[in-house]
Amino acid sequence: MIPFESAVERHGATVLRVCRAVLGPLEAEDAWAETFLAALSSYDDLPEGTNLEAWLVTVAHRKAIDVRRAEQRRAVPSAELPEHGRHDPDPTAHDPVYDALRALPPKQRQAVAYHHLGGLSHREVAEILGGTEAAARRACADGITTLRRTLR
């Protein structure tokens, strides 16, 4: 297994893109950090030959769900405005591609993010989202069609 630092260097940007695509701009950094902290924790037990990027994207998928749930729990009881300035400004906050991605239905958004940004195969996407490989392929294709229409 390569040193963990090398894994962060090689795959950190990809995982950040995936997190930004499936979450809002502010939640993405929390999901990224949770992903790599969890990955570090189990890194010494990882079987030799594991596809690191696919593994990290899979962890990021779970952490994105956790972060989204935590945000929703926080948001429900309080009528206060969202906390601004908690993070530095996210360069993707007003990026048209991210905006279009985030506007997709969840399954399509996740499928496009994991396949096109995270490099997972359609089969791997189906494994983490549930459903068939064909359904994952269709979600990707539908998502890309919508993106293309939105961004034209």
Partner: peptide
């Protein structure tokens, strides 16, 4: 389509 996403 997704190329601008690599620059962030």
């Amino acid at each position: 389509l997704l190329s601008t996403i690599g620059r962030d």
